[in-house]
Write a protein that binds this DNA or RNA. Structure first.
Length: 654
DNA sequence: TAGGGGTCTATAT
DNA sequence: TAGACCCCTA
């Protein structure tokens, strides 16, 4: 059931991303969603009890996609049913049985198509399917874990412990368990929707100081969730209005005032509803999950010592199992409902290595990722990465490339300059290159659209909100400039080629980076142009001259990552896309991808054309731009953002 | 008119 | 499970 309408409600806290942006991260997956979708494709066979692995292959496509992108997946499966959901589960079981009967009847009548529809409705994900998928995952050393109860709570736990920096699901309930970064609607091209818990206040339409996660959770419970139906006439909008008006510390007394706050005089909030509400809240907060490091069940959140009546309130949040049972349940060795032994897999057993020997092509990936079942496993410090550009800003010391002539005498790095053109005014440092990984990890994610007004839609509601709320005195002039930009004709092109980030870099820097090889992962992102510069005999000093940029072949450069056999197999059959937008400006076609700005001539508009002109840094070739930009001079004191009507000087004045 | 609620449909290959 | 659509209600 989930929370009706929650995903659209969270629009302002959401960003469209591509899963490839999470390279190097760990993601925990609500695997039931994939299994269910996969089973839809072989519903007839499954309902007839025939052997099929289509649903397993479907899930493995996603797994392989993640592995190919150097993203570590952890597959989480639902465990036992909570008492709170007993009614829901029995309803579902009843519906499935009815659909089965109808399907059989329709088949007897020869109505095949109608029968197929009913067969799809009676799909049930069994523990046998789970074990089958687990075995496939183990061949690739992909960790699997059966949650003691709801997978949602387990996902949130792993997310909060930083075992998984992101979680993938289709179930909006997950937001209520406190996961910080949730990915919805992931498809096989990698496109998905990222909901960031740090932005939930935007969705609720309140200031960060007035927001609390308790308010958000209370709003969702009020609007109706798996553990409690909503009061009549209360949906997300009204629930939001209510929780923002009240003091969230005492819901018991606040709920009694709900009819008055919402002007719904006929609404009755019974004592029973209030106690069920408090139980639902406790279920979301204190559900049992499995901690693979302590190897025992723990509460999602610690129960406060001063909490009264917690035994009653937590009566729906699961019961504690013996450690040995909980361990084997988490490994998938027990049927969650009967607790009968159905498998005997143990971490680091011969079973796993034997598979790896027989299937040597998967050994590479096996070696890559430490297992959560390894006793020495520690959540590693993974750089959170949703924006390649954002990392580029931090890792490169731009102040050292003044000789490019682009930055003038302000001794500003391009990160700072970019910030002056950006919608926000975050505190910026001249260089982050010397910062520790921990500090980097804590750095808030900068979504591309916030940093690069050209790369994403300007009408994005999130950004509008930020602009409106900004107290920065420069906001209005910036808005006016952005209005100018928004007049450009923009069309979204879905088809594109992946290009590595060079957005704010100069050729000089690229070549320097290539020579120094300080950071292989970063370096390779630039290697295409840098190598080209070398080929053309361009020195770092002159590398910024656009004349040296001849037409380049847009060839994906995968040298930056260890692409194993799985990746290669996958990439043969899957096309990874980045979003691409096209501007028309002074009879030029300018295309911005997530990572680049590309100028293409009319004859090259076919995006499948092999040759396109790549513009290093921002904007157009210098020579052409000076003549055509409506009198906006392209001098040393001005970056190429001026191509779009921005003037640098006045913004950089101190 | 905004917002809630019920119903129907798609999900895969 | 989510989204679209339509209808109803305050």
């Amino acid at each position: 059931m989930g929370i009706t309408g929650l995903i659209p409600f969270l629009e302002k806290a959401s960003t469209k991303i591509n899963i490839k942006d999470l390279k190097g991260c760990t993601v925990a997956i609500d695997t039931y969603c994939w299994l269910h979708r996969g089973a839809y494709g072989c519903a007839e066979k499954l309902s007839r009890g025939e052997s099929t692995n289509i649903h397993i292959l479907y899930c493995m496509k996603f797994v392989n996609m993640l592995l190919s992108l150097n993203i570590k997946p952890i597959m989480i499966f639902d465990g036992r049913h909570l008492p709170a959901k007993a009614l829901t589960e029995s309803r579902r079981r009843e519906n499935r049985n009815q659909a089965k009967k109808r399907a059989a009847e329709l088949l007897r009548l020869g109505q095949i198509d109608e029968a197929k529809v009913q067969m799809r409705r009676c799909i049930d994900i069994t523990h046998d399917m789970v074990i089958e998928l687990m075995k496939e995952c183990r061949k690739r050393n992909v960790d699997c874990l059966v949650a003691p109860y709801e997978a949602d709570a387990q996902l949130a736990y792993l997310n909060r412990k930083n075992v998984a920096q992101y979680v993938i699901t289709e179930d909006s309930d997950l937001t209520l368990f406190g996961a910080s970064r949730i990915i919805f609607k992931l498809d096989l091209t990698g496109n998905c929707l990222l909901v960031d818990a740090e932005k939930l206040h935007l969705a609720m339409g309140c200031k960060p100081e007035n927001y609390s996660f308790d308010k958000f959770r209370n709003m969702c419970i009020l609007s109706g969730c798996d553990y409690l139906d909503s009061l009549p006439g209360i949906g997300l909008a009204k629930a939001c209005k209510f929780v923002l008006r009240i003091d969230d510390s005492d819901m018991e007394s606040a709920l009694k005032k709900l009819p008055r706050h919402l002007n719904l005089r006929n609404l009755v909030v019974s004592e029973d509803y209030i106690s069920e509400f408090l139980k639902a809240e406790a279920t979301f907060k204190f559900m049992y999950v499995y901690d693979p490091f302590q190897r025992k069940m723990v509460r999602l959140n610690e129960i406060p010592k001063d909490m009264k009546n917690f035994e009653v309130l937590c009566s729906n949040a699961g019961s504690l199992l013996d450690d040995e049972i909980a361990y084997n349940l988490a490994l998938g060795n027990l049927n969650p409902f009967t607790l009968d032994k159905v498998d005997d897999w143990q971490p680091n057993s011969g079973y796993n290595s034997q598979v790896a020997v027989n299937d040597s092509k998967h050994q590479t990936s096996k070696l890559k990722h430490p297992s959560i079942w390894d006793l020495n496993f520690k959540p590693h410090n993974v750089k959170r990465q949703t924006s390649i550009n954002a990392f580029t800003f931090r890792k490169i010391k731009y102040s050292s490339i003044d000789d490019s002539g682009e930055l003038g005498d302000n001794n500003q790095d391009e990160c700072h300059i970019a910030s002056l053109y950006s919608m926000h005014s975050p505190p910026l440092k001249k260089s982050r290159s010397s910062e520790s990984p921990d500090k980097l990890e804590n750095f808030p994610i900068m979504i591309q659209s916030n940093r690069n007004p050209f790369a994403k839609s300007l009408s994005h509601s999130c950004e509008e909100n930020n602009v409106t709320n900004s107290s920065d005195p420069d906001t209005l002039p910036r808005l006016r400039k952005l209005e100018r930009l928004s007049k450009f004709e923009r069309t979204v092109i879905n088809d594109s080629k992946e290009i590595k980030s060079r957005f704010f870099t100069s050729n000089a820097l690229l070549v320097q980076k290539l020579n120094k090889s300080e950071d292989n992962q970063e370096e390779s992102g630039f290697s295409l142009i840098a190598k080209q510069s070398r080929k053309e005999g361009i020195s770092p000093e002159e590398g910024n001259s656009n004349e040296n940029f001849e037409t380049l072949d847009l060839v994906e450069d995968n040298s930056h990552t260890e692409v194993d056999e799985i990746s290669k197999d996958f990439e043969k059959t899957q096309n990874m896309y980045v979003s691409m937008e096209e501007f028309e400006f002074n009879n030029k076609k300018i295309v911005t991808t997530d990572t680049d700005i590309i100028e293409i001539s009319d004859s090259e508009l076919d995006l499948k054309s092999k040759t396109k002109r790549i513009i290093p840094r921002l904007g157009l070739p210098r020579k052409k731009s000076t003549n055509k930009m409506n009198g906006v001079a392209d001098t040393n004191s001005q970056t190429r953002l001026s191509m779009f009507g921005f003037k640098k000087k006045e913004l950089l004045k101190r």
